[in-house]
Simulated assay, not measured.
Amino acid sequence: MTGPRGADVTRHVVVDTDAGIDDACALLYLAGHPGVEITAVTSVAGNRPERDVARNIGCVTRLLGLAPPVARGAAGPLPGAPSVPRGTHGTDGLGAPLARHGLPRPMPAVSGESAAELIVRLARDRPGELDLLALGPLTNLALALRTDPALFTKYRSVVVMGGSGPYDLPGDRLARDSNIARDPAAARAVATAPRADLVMLGVDVTATAVLQPEGIAALDAAGTPVARFAAAILGAYLRLGDGTGRRGGVPLHDPLAAGILLDPSLATGTALGPVAVLPDGPLWRARLMRARDGRPAPFPHEPAPDTRVVTAVDTARFLRGFLTALTGGATAPGDASGATT
């Protein structure tokens, strides 16, 4: 079996996604790496309703010339979840630039299995071989754990884009922890499940991986269909950021999670310990029950196995790699990334 550029496949990735703009860029980034196979993609409601998510998966995989198994997943969170705004991904979840670029959003051919069923079956059939990358609310993973409580022990690794990092003093100003807030019960099920290797990359870190307008311009200048598509949706993300078009850059939340899965050395800081899902006003956050200085959190919390929580990343190296993966090396990424750290 070969990867996108003919190299031997060394990573087989199952992607669970709510297919917003940065989710789409994570799929493009994975596909741009030699030796990486996107083994399956599953949809979950989040950035947009699940039907839109499935259509966006179809749009991106068609653009890439890939046809991985696609399974449709949860149309909503587990009972009791708060209402969380959809965020800044436009009316279709991809910033709505597709009609201008002549790109269809077909409903892909889908598996007869649900997302949870496919996630469970793949782990059972190929234990220790696959990596699971969760880019949206964790509803599908929680449902899969109901069928197989040992699910995460069968994946080579599980990487979750969500959480808010180590516990700190009240009053921390952090980006909204949307993937956790949209289904806190599912996040709690994931945080407490047995695992071989569970990595959590939170908004405290992903918000630092910001692609500046110069980076978006470099993608557009590369001229390939993938790079121009990425430039179009990231440009829409930039304009949608605060409604004024003056936002400084776009955070690459989900591509960074994909980057950590493929190259754990991008993480320049990690902490190990239990993760708890805690109220944060009307919403919820997932926090490592350790302070940044290593002290345990000063309050009781639900017991959980250790999660490896990323606390810092080499953002400049990641952003260079992101541009290279999406352009096939057609840019000078050291000059064009516009990295901020």
Rank of each mutant, 00 (worst) to 15 (best):
A222I: 09
G338E: 04
A304I: 08
D22H: 06
A54T: 15
A218L: 06
T307P: 00
T324R: 13
D8F: 04
V110S: 10
T88V: 13
N47W: 12
R156M: 09
R124A: 15
E302S: 09
P149R: 10
S83K: 10
L278H: 10
A81Q: 10
T42R: 01
Y237H: 15
D168Q: 15
G245E: 09
T91G: 15
G32M: 04
S178P: 00
G32A: 06
A222C: 08
Y167K: 02
L118I: 07
G80S: 04
L261H: 05
G87N: 04
L326R: 10
S157T: 15
T61F: 04
Y29I: 04
I180K: 08
F299L: 12
P296M: 12
V159Y: 02
R5C: 07
V70A: 11
A74Q: 04
L130N: 08
A40Q: 03
I21F: 05
P68G: 03
T311H: 03
G73Y: 00
A75M: 03
K154Y: 11
L98K: 03
A99F: 00
A191I: 00
A24V: 08
S114E: 06
R146K: 07
R188H: 13
L78I: 14
L201W: 03
P298N: 10
S157P: 04
D22F: 06
A116Y: 10
